[in-house]
Nucleic acid binder design. Structure first.
Lengths: 334, 334
DNA sequence: TTGAAAGCGGTACCAC
DNA sequence: GTGGTACCGCTTTCAA
């Protein structure tokens, strides 16, 4: 076997004195093979270090046991948590992760191309997909589950940003805040816009329609920059649509503007990402149930991989308000 | 073609009235094919949506264009930056990433098994590999590049923690600090131990041999917990072997112990991770040149993929001291 | 239970 | 330049 190439099932067969088919069956889930023969084959296989070639298996069985994970860069400065969870859950189920981390949403088409070529069994997308792109999944018969995104006809798992945001705004209102400022996200981002409109809607129902708004790009820097402007416009309660921008705003408020948080200014975020829990920030935010969400995403995906006719289900989770110390809010029933 | 299966090169050949070989050549890098025929084939291919099957290509050509990336969980609470860089650089070179995110270092063996089965072209490992494991790479003829790890006989790219740590300690000493405390990492972690011994060595050369030490696990929480103990033992300059622990220590110092940083206490970290730059911390640390390091890792890897006989090179980078405001240090030549 | 043989969808080498 | 053909390493009938 030491001739350089890796051992194949034929090598095992030859040495064990059995047919190649027998070797194959030995490594199949419900083989029909005599125990003694099985022992022998496994022994030989172990000796020469034989492992089934995943490529060859996939080529014929039409099953790669690979799931592609697409993640948009900007969207999730907090994605490590999601990614780690997804990876762990998938490997428990014996799936490997082919990762596509986009730096631009425009790269999606190229990624899809690769996905088709590699015949992945399924896809989890935390990047925006157009209707046309979602349609391609159906054409190619590749199940997809969207993570915190929506698209008609596609399965999805998401955290109901609207509900969480309304909760947050309601509590800020109940605590007496009236001069709000909004740090929103890019126009093309689904969750950002969902949170933005939920916040504005909740405010307008309380009679507050003049809400200074600055659009950021989910980064610390953009939140930091937005703060100065909102302060100049008299805002006393800042609603940022994600945690990183809230944290940037908080630093700008405290360090650059010399304000006390939450005495002079209340700031809330959204996500419950790692950074929000840092002691220096202790952000009041809405935590997404990442673990439950990733589990659901994988459950939905595997269900659709195993039964192509399963309908594309949507799962909605609610976030958990985390009362930090970055905002004066009403904590109890308000 | 609408019979459910995806089009193959035979389908294209049949419709275009050419041989299957011609179709194959059409999609090969330096085809030898008549321009007119080429046009025709590409047109038909586009019409029926043909894409070469990566599995079949890989099976015969022995090239998957897939690189496995192994990342250990604890080690890199800052790995998103590394991962994003690696992914971006690899896709520029037309490689896909098969991601293995370990939650336990012990999972490495299982991961290696998957790696062999999937015939990846190369591996980048930011997880510890035993000598035996490194040897397996050689046996399987899979090039590997270690990221911030070392192992004899394996190519590696790393940031010289020793140099950076000595620099940091030297500056703390020059600023007059004498009562040091060390927050180190797990015993089995290479970079952690390298930084730890560099710090202790530098201190001992300055005549300081009594250095209270608490071992953490690279997390915020462990740094936070370590602080109380070090403070109780009279430390006034805290050296944490990574940023997250330094940040945890800083919060403990300021919030729980009511100390002013850096007036009462100096704290330094290591990595230059995203969190260190947050305004509330503005950590004095050593920044690893992540971008240059990932580029080097990929360059080394691709070189070895293309020329299996290329010797396993080691590249060492130096970190850049970032003078934040978390420590009183000597800034100029000391 | 077992082995022979036919593919899976390509690449590569071969005469022509 | 072109098509024929062997073959990559496995799964999957099928007949024995």
């Amino acid at each position: 076997m030491e001739d350089g190439r890796r051992p194949t099932s034929y090598d095992v067969a030859r040495i064990a004195g059995v047919s190649q088919s027998a070797v194959s069956r030995c490594f199949a889930p419900n083989a029909s093979i005599a125990p003694a023969k099985r022992e022998l084959i496994l022994k030989v296989a172990a000796e020469i270090g034989y492992k089934p070639n995943a490529l060859a298996q996939a080529l014929i069985s039409k099953r790669t046991n690979i799931v592609a994970v697409i993640i948009a860069a900007r969207t999730n400065l907090y994605y490590p948590e999601v990614l780690a969870e997804v990876g762990a859950r998938l490997s428990e189920k014996d799936f490997r992760v082919l990762l596509f981390a986009l730096s631009q949403e425009s790269e999606v088409d190229g990624v899809l191309d690769q996905i088709w070529r590699h015949s992945v069994d399924g896809v989890i997308s935390a990047a925006r997909l157009s209707t046309a792109q979602v349609a391609q999944f159906a054409e190619h018969r590749v199940p997809v589950v969207l993570y915190n995104r929506v698209a008609s006809g596609a399965a999805s798992v998401r955290c109901d940003s609207g509900e969480g945001e309304r909760d947050l705004v309601g509590r800020l209102l109940a605590a007496g805040h009236r001069r709000f400022g909004l740090i929103s996200g890019p126009l093309d981002n689904y969750v950002g816009e969902e949170r933005r409109s939920a916040a504005l809607m909740a405010l307008s129902m309380a009679g507050i329609t003049e809400v200074p708004e600055v659009r950021g790009d989910f980064t610390y820097e953009s939140g930091h920059a937005a703060m100065a402007e909102l302060h100049a416009r008299g805002c006393e309660a800042i609603i940022a649509v994600n945690d990183m921008m809230a944290i940037g705003a908080m630093d700008a408020a405290r360090i650059d503007l010399g304000l006390s948080v939450p005495q002079d200014l209340s700031i809330v975020g959204f996500d419950g990402s790692g950074a929000s829990r840092l002691g220096a920030y202790d952000l009041t935010t809405v935590r997404q149930p990442v673990r439950r969400m990733t589990e659901a995403a994988i459950e939905l995906l595997i269900k659709r991989i195993e039964d192509a006719s399963a309908p594309p289900e949507q799962r909605l989770f609610s976030g958990q308000m985390e009362a930090g110390s970055s905002a004066r809010i009403a904590v109890e029933g308000y």
